[in-house]
């Protein structure tokens, strides 16, 4: 990445200015894992703040555009600069997702289940970090953030258990009227563009990503524009969970800028409009029609993600393949 040096220098400059304001905030102590630039601890040590980048193809690049945007908490206080992904980043992410598809969709369901369970394990290990990030991003109490993080961990476990049951539940041996053996199996749709929920930065994100990859799809996710930081940290969890690079690609930036490229992209097979900007939804659906994408529309209001899911999101990104063979001697 030829641009690294340049944008890296920008990041360093930004950090310096930031620490002053973070210091004014006081209160926010603790070390690694907290959102934004943590204030000096009581012992006077300056914590090491994190640079929030994209997660594409298993790596953490900055936006090729060199752009960042300021992320604030719900009270408008600065948390961090997030990468502002560009069209080119979105296209790179689609390439990575497509490249990852044959291996991930070809993995055994048992293997995918173990990888998703491993994500839950890794998330559990970083629970406190996510609680702090979710609380900061969403402006909710620590207790509420804990409940959301716990639910997110449990959601990975729930979907981990689904990987080797989907075919049994949705597939069939078809009793055709003739001398044939005929069966139908669900198969992953391919590369899914996901516009993550805007309010629920972690639980909502996990609730839309886990069902997509549980069945063998790969995806390009546009994180919540206002609350992107837990998504980037989730990328770190995914990167250390034996999930092959490219299966999940996380972009931060402007949904209104990125979504049209995903909706029109010929190598994206399906679109989840969950967190799509309201004024853009119909346009995105129209763009998706050019390549006959499967589209999951946005709900009227963001759902209560703490409720128990059904298998609708698993089914939404599956194709049914029917195979026939004659019987005889």
């Amino acid at each position: 990445m030829g641009r690294n040096g340049n944008s890296g220098r920008n990041d360093e400059n930004a950090k310096q200015g930031k620490n002053v304001r973070d210091g004014e905030r006081g209160g926010h102590t603790g070390h690694a894992g907290h959102t934004g630039h943590a204030a000096p601890a009581a012992d006077g040590r300056l914590p090491v703040a994190k640079t929030y980048k994209l997660y594409v193809g298993g790596a953490f690049p900055r936006s090729e555009s060199g752009r960042v945007y300021q992320v604030t908490d719900t009270k408008g206080r600065f948390l961090a600069n997030a990468a502002q992904a560009s069209r080119k980043d979105a296209r790179d992410a689609v390439v990575a997702a497509r490249k990852a598809f044959p291996k991930w969709s070809g993995a055994t369901a048992y293997n995918r289940g173990q990888v998703l369970y491993r994500v839950a394990e890794m998330l559990e290990g970083r629970r406190e970090q996510f609680v702090a990030e979710v609380a900061a991003a969403e402006g909710v109490s620590t207790k509420r953030a804990q409940a959301d993080v716990d639910a997110a961990i449990d959601r990975w476990v729930w979907y981990a258990g689904w990987t080797d049951k989907v075919s049994t539940v949705l597939g069939a041996a078809n009793p055709v009227a003739g001398p044939y053996f005929c069966f139908s199996v669900p198969e992953p749709t391919g590369v899914v563009g996901v516009l993550a929920p805007r309010a629920s930065s972690l639980l909502g994100l996990v609730s839309v990503v886990a069902p997509v990859i549980a069945t063998g799809n790969t995806c390009v996710v546009v994180a919540s524009e206002e609350r992107p930081l837990p998504a980037v940290t989730l990328g770190e969890v995914l990167a250390t969970s034996d999930l092959p690079g490219g299966v999940v690609n996380l972009l931060t930036g402007r949904a209104a800028e990125l979504a049209p490229w995903l909706a029109a992209h010929g190598d994206v097979n399906a679109l989840d409009l969950c967190g799509a900007p309201e004024g853009l939804r119909a346009d995105l659906e129209r763009a998706a029609a050019d390549t006959v994408k499967r589209v999951v529309r946005a709900p009227a209001a963001e759902p209560d993600w703490t409720r128990q899911p059904d298998i609708g999101r698993l089914r939404a990104f599956l194709e049914t393949k029917t195979v026939w063979h004659p019987t005889g001697v």
């Binding site: 078809n174 009793p175 055709v176 003739g178 005929c182 139908s184 029917t322 026939w324």
Partner: peptide, 9 residues
Amino acid sequence: RFDPTAPFG
């Protein structure tokens, strides 16, 4: 081959 019990699409 086509049959009402066999999903097609």
